[in-house]
Amino acid sequence: MARNISFAMTTGQFRQQTKFVTRRNGWKFLKCGDVLNGCVKCMGLKPGEKIERLGRIVVVDVRPEPLQCLIDWPIYGRTEAILEGFPEMYGHEFAAMFIKHMGGDLDTERTRIQFEYLEE
Score class of each variant (00 low, 15 high):
residue 91 G to S: 09
residue 58 V to N: 05
residue 31 K to R: 06
residue 86 F to I: 07
residue 20 F to D: 08
residue 96 A to R: 10
residue 86 F to N: 05
residue 19 K to G: 02
residue 35 V to K: 12
residue 5 I to K: 06
residue 60 V to L: 07
residue 9 M to E: 01
residue 21 V to Q: 12
residue 20 F to C: 03
residue 8 A to G: 03
residue 92 H to F: 13
residue 90 Y to A: 10
residue 104 G to L: 07
residue 39 C to I: 05
residue 62 V to D: 12
residue 46 K to D: 08
residue 75 I to D: 12
residue 2 A to V: 12
residue 87 P to D: 04
residue 14 F to S: 01
residue 26 G to L: 13
residue 24 R to D: 03
residue 100 K to Y: 11
residue 48 G to S: 02
residue 120 E to L: 12
residue 83 L to D: 14
residue 15 R to M: 15
residue 21 V to E: 10
residue 63 R to N: 00
residue 84 E to N: 01
residue 8 A to W: 00
residue 94 F to P: 02
residue 10 T to L: 01
residue 57 I to W: 13
residue 59 V to Y: 03
residue 35 V to M: 15
residue 9 M to T: 04
residue 22 T to A: 04
residue 99 I to Y: 03
residue 80 E to S: 08
residue 25 N to G: 14
residue 10 T to E: 06
residue 108 T to A: 06
residue 2 A to F: 10
residue 101 H to I: 07
residue 85 G to M: 02
residue 72 D to H: 15
residue 61 D to F: 04
residue 78 R to S: 09
residue 85 G to E: 15
residue 9 M to A: 02
residue 27 W to C: 03
residue 73 W to N: 11
residue 35 V to W: 12
residue 42 C to Y: 05
residue 71 I to A: 02
residue 3 R to N: 03
residue 18 T to K: 02
residue 43 M to Y: 15
residue 100 K to T: 07
residue 28 K to N: 13
residue 37 N to I: 10
residue 62 V to I: 00
residue 2 A to M: 10
residue 93 E to T: 05
residue 36 L to I: 01
residue 13 Q to D: 01
residue 100 K to N: 01
residue 53 R to D: 04
residue 5 I to Y: 00
residue 2 A to T: 08
residue 48 G to D: 07
residue 28 K to E: 14
residue 111 T to L: 07
residue 18 T to C: 06
residue 41 K to Q: 06
residue 104 G to T: 01
residue 50 K to G: 05
residue 88 E to Y: 13
residue 20 F to Y: 14
residue 33 G to V: 03
residue 33 G to D: 10
residue 28 K to T: 14
residue 61 D to R: 11
residue 81 A to N: 12
residue 62 V to C: 09
residue 113 I to L: 00
residue 103 G to T: 14
residue 44 G to Y: 01
residue 56 R to C: 08
residue 13 Q to S: 03
residue 43 M to D: 14
residue 35 V to Y: 11
residue 112 R to L: 05
residue 5 I to P: 10
residue 108 T to C: 15
residue 2 A to I: 10
residue 1 M to K: 08
residue 67 L to Y: 04
residue 53 R to A: 08
residue 8 A to P: 02
residue 65 E to Y: 11
residue 10 T to A: 09
residue 23 R to Q: 12
residue 117 Y to C: 04
residue 23 R to D: 10
residue 8 A to F: 11
residue 95 A to W: 00
residue 1 M to T: 10
residue 98 F to V: 00
residue 29 F to R: 09
residue 38 G to S: 04
residue 26 G to R: 13
residue 120 E to K: 12
residue 30 L to G: 02
residue 93 E to M: 11
residue 109 E to S: 15
residue 98 F to Q: 12
residue 64 P to I: 06
residue 48 G to M: 13
residue 4 N to I: 04
residue 57 I to M: 12
residue 55 G to M: 01
residue 58 V to I: 12
residue 22 T to L: 06
residue 28 K to V: 08
residue 25 N to C: 13
residue 13 Q to L: 04
residue 66 P to K: 13
residue 91 G to L: 07
residue 21 V to C: 05
residue 47 P to I: 07
residue 90 Y to H: 06
residue 36 L to R: 13
residue 111 T to W: 11
residue 62 V to E: 06
residue 113 I to F: 01
residue 88 E to C: 03
residue 82 I to M: 10
residue 83 L to Y: 09
